[in-house]
């Protein structure tokens, strides 16, 4: 009945679980930024392997994430195709050489090694961060999630709203289901049998009660929070916040080192691109 569409936290008893949420968040953000900036293929392959090894150690089962994975892969492929359609010569522009594989240089759609190489880099960029993001989401206790957002400088009100919104997703989903069925019982046909416009109108019928019941929920929860002094001070403490342990410092050190290598490669390559065609 209930498909596991959303990815969920589970204590898998690995060293990644024991790292503090802030460490994982900082590492994920740091590595993503450097990975997005660089086009050094050697470096990208390096951190890709690094993140796959971590993913292996995280004991996350592939079937738990297969849905998310297939969505991401689908979008990446689509994106790569679109890049080729709109800019088939971009690789040539970047690397300054042209090694033709198919077609001739005065055709709009030709295929060059440079373009393939450029798109390979893009593919690496899209995918290396995915295991890291999954590790962060699936090994961080949701309770610690807000605390770690707060620790890296985001206001605790925003951090808490994010955490609460995440917590309410299942409730809203079940509300939606109940309301939708109650409306169908009244005679609103919203299954695939009905014409498109009827379905849209049926959807609107569900939105109204859903919005009202969600607004009720928000009012009650915000009163309950206020009655327990949420928002009183500029700061708050977190029961679940983890103090940095030796492993956290170690992890941050490794990540910092990786980032420094990335920056050093900018100097070596004289820019963001590594050019094997020269």
């Amino acid at each position: 009945m209930q498909n596991q569409l959303l990815i969920g936290y589970d204590d898998r008893h690995t060293f990644l679980n024991r790292l503090s949420g802030s460490t994982k968040l900082l590492s994920f953000v740091g590595l993503s930024v450097i990975g997005m900036m660089t086009y050094d293929t050697r470096y990208l392959i390096g951190i890709m392997i690094f993140s796959l090894i971590l993913f292996h150690f995280s004991k996350i089962k592939y079937r738990d994430v297969s849905f998310v994975m297939s969505v991401i892969i689908g979008f990446s492929v689509l994106n790569l195709v679109m890049v080729y359609v709109f800019a088939p010569h971009y690789g040539v522009d970047i690397y300054g050489t042209e090694h033709l594989l198919l077609g001739s240089s005065n055709h709009y759609f030709n295929l060059t090694t440079e373009q393939l190489f450029y798109e390979f880099n893009l593919l690496l960029k899209y995918t290396f961060a995915v295991p890291l993001a999954l590790i962060f989401l699936m090994t961080t206790n949701p309770s610690e999630f807000a605390a770690s957002l707060n620790k890296i400088g985001i206001s605790y009100r925003i951090s808490y709203s994010v955490a609460i919104a995440l917590r309410y997703i299942p409730d809203v989903q079940s509300d939606y289901r109940t309301i939708s069925l109650a409306q169908q019982a009244r005679g609103f046909e919203i299954s695939k049998k009905a014409p498109f416009m009827t379905r849209v109108r049926g959807g609107v019928q569900i939105m109204l009660p859903l919005i009202f019941s969600s607004l009720d929920r928000i009012e009650v929860i915000s009163q309950a929070m206020e009655l327990r002094r949420f928002g009183k001070g500029k700061k708050r403490t977190w029961y679940m916040a983890q103090k940095f342990q030796r492993n956290d410092y170690l992890a941050l050190f490794v990540v910092a080192l990786l980032i420094l290598i990335g920056i050093a490669l900018f100097k070596v390559n004289g820019g963001r691109f590594w050019n094997p065609f020269k």
């Binding site: 949701p142 929860i221 309950a224 929070m225 002094r229 949420f230 928002g231 009183k232 001070g233 029961y239």
Partner: peptide, 15 residues
């Protein structure tokens, strides 16, 4: 508010 019982108990102390 809290995701677990103990966090909910501690909520006002956190604030």
């Amino acid at each position: 508010v809290g995701l677990t019982v103990v966090e909910d108990m501690a909520f006002s102390l956190e604030n």
